[in-house]
Computed example of a mutant assay.
Amino acid sequence: MEVIFIKRYVVEFGYGVDLHGQDVNKAAQKAVKDAISHSCLCGLEEILGVNLDEVIVEAIVAVSRPEEIDEEGIKAVLPIGQKYVKAVKGGLRVPGIKEPQFGDTEDDSIEVAVACVTVSIK
């Protein structure tokens, strides 16, 4: 059996907010987009010669209701690699203002998500 070692190349954090609608997926997608917008992976191709389709990209999202996370929707935000998503309990839910015309469905809360995106190579 061959042992494969995975080495982290980038660890980046981001946060996202759904001001109206109480949607953990919208907040999580924004958090992942925020995290990946802070990184340029040019060293993977230019220095290491790594094919970007072969990197391993893991997104861990912390939201108030992790059981509602649509993993495929989060993966769709990640532009490259073998994609993995994990949702955990966390994030933040704070009072806002309930305006149905803006999409509020449940209450006046604002949903905040935190994401950690890790890019690794074999």
Rank of each mutant, 00 (worst) to 15 (best):
M1C: 02
E2L: 13
I6C: 04
R8C: 00
G14S: 03
G14L: 01
Y15S: 15
G16S: 10
G21L: 03
D23L: 03
N25K: 09
A27N: 02
K30A: 04
K30V: 01
A31C: 08
V32W: 00
V32N: 01
A35L: 06
H38W: 06
C40G: 12
C40I: 09
C42V: 10
G43C: 12
E46L: 15
L48I: 08
L48C: 06
G49R: 13
V50E: 11
V55N: 08
I56T: 09
I56G: 02
V57N: 02
A59D: 10
A59F: 02
A59H: 04
V61E: 04
S64H: 12
E67F: 12
E68G: 00
D70E: 11
E71Q: 08
V77G: 00
P79V: 06
Q82M: 11
Q82R: 15
K83T: 06
Y84M: 11
Y84T: 05
V85H: 05
A87S: 15
K89R: 15
G90F: 05
G91S: 09
G91T: 07
R93Y: 02
V94T: 13
Q101E: 15
F102G: 00
T105Y: 12
D107E: 09
V114M: 08
A115T: 06
A115R: 13
S120T: 01
K122G: 07
